[in-house]
Design a protein around this nucleic acid. Structure first.
Lengths: 199, 199
DNA sequence: ACTATATCGAACCGATCGGTACTATCAAGG
DNA sequence: CCTTGATAGTACCGATCGGTTCGATATAGT
């Protein structure tokens, strides 16, 4: 029965539903660990629908990774701004957010890192590069507001802590990784703020 | 022509040659990016030979990842001990070694991390976990010899910097990642040594 | 010399993959 | 009402995959 008789025909909604399901499935089983057929079955759609919306599996992967990057970036940014105006508080809030994320059931590391490692070129790599550029912007911004001498450099170091903690939390596994990283980040910030640029 | 007429029949050598070739190929193209057929072609051997030595593709992958872990662990350990007895010098040497590695042509991130992300379970995960345990031993040992209060915790933080720098160096890409990580590591060590445990 | 072993080359297997084609059916909009 | 478009369902395609088997042939050890 093509088009179930009581269904609402809304292409945009269908696309979003496929995207949501694929985001979870590709994160859990890996980009090459789920076939297009399985994705369609789990989404309750036909192959033709998926291919009309995304063109190819690579197209779907690209959309999934891009959407994930956007969502994560928004989420971390909000966690920082919600912590008030003090740069140290904002930095702590970022790592606290990481901590709760790492403890979530089904946590399998950073989806962007995982995707970029699995599809090292293609459409994923540039998305991953932009993703970490934006993450660097967030962290370097905090460092700049703290008045450190070289906010870009401290931002890169903090980014390494964020990524390292997330990867390690997945692979060792180490549920306290984000807590360790938080202390290290605050120590680096305090250390850099001791020899400030202007203030 | 089975068994070329002028060849030396040495199973151990054959096995080692397959392992070497597979190490490079699987690192470059990913664990699922090279078929068994291709591996055999590039190694100049037949399928039967590969399957007699390793049983399955998973068996080959396991041997490759394990060998890589051993080699890398030895390499980093030697870099540290070759730097003398001062803990700060040893720590700096570790990140200097990382720096030259990241600059090598064909660098694609940490092979162990990549493998564990691609085959999230199976035989790879426990090898990766042990790998980072050993890496932690090295870093925590340096921290302990520096007389910090909690060498295990500092070791975990240093490990995050090592992993984060390596992943970022691959994905952004950032050739100076290891240099940034080195400075952060030394700062954390100095900071922790300011409030020592016994000395 | 004889036997066991290692190897190649090729054919072969069933399964699965990404992607396409086609038909039937229903909702949505002019 | 009637056309247009979205969709399910299914069958199908060629390619590739991991893995097995077999026969021919050469080396290695006894």
């Amino acid at each position: 029965m093509p088009v179930p008789k009581g269904s609402t025909l809304d292409p945009a909604r269908t696309r979003a539903a496929i995207l949501d399901m694929a985001t979870d499935a590709l994160y859990e089983h890996g980009l090459d660990g789920v076939s297009v057929g399985r994705l369609c079955t789990e989404a309750g759609i036909s192959k033709e629908t998926l291919y009309r919306h995304f063109g190819s599996k690579d197209g779907l992967v690209q959309a999934v990774v891009q959407a994930r990057s956007d969502r994560v970036t928004r989420w971390l940014s909000r966690a920082a701004t919600a912590a008030g105006e003090d740069p140290a508080d904002q930095l702590a809030a970022v790592f606290d957010a990481l901590s709760t994320w790492h403890a979530e059931p089904g946590f399998r590391g950073c989806a962007i890192v995982n995707a970029a490692v699995q599809h090292h070129a293609d459409p994923v790599r540039p998305i991953a590069a932009r993703h970490f550029d934006r993450r660097l912007d967030l962290l370097a911004g905090i460092a700049a507001r703290a008045g450190v001498a070289d906010p870009e450099r401290l931002g890169r170091q903090l980014l390494q802590l964020v990524v390292g903690a997330t990867v390690i939390a997945d692979l060792r596994p180490d549920p306290g990784a984000a807590r360790d990283a938080r202390e290290a980040a605050l120590a680096l910030l305090a250390n850099a703020a001791q020899s400030p640029s202007t203030r």
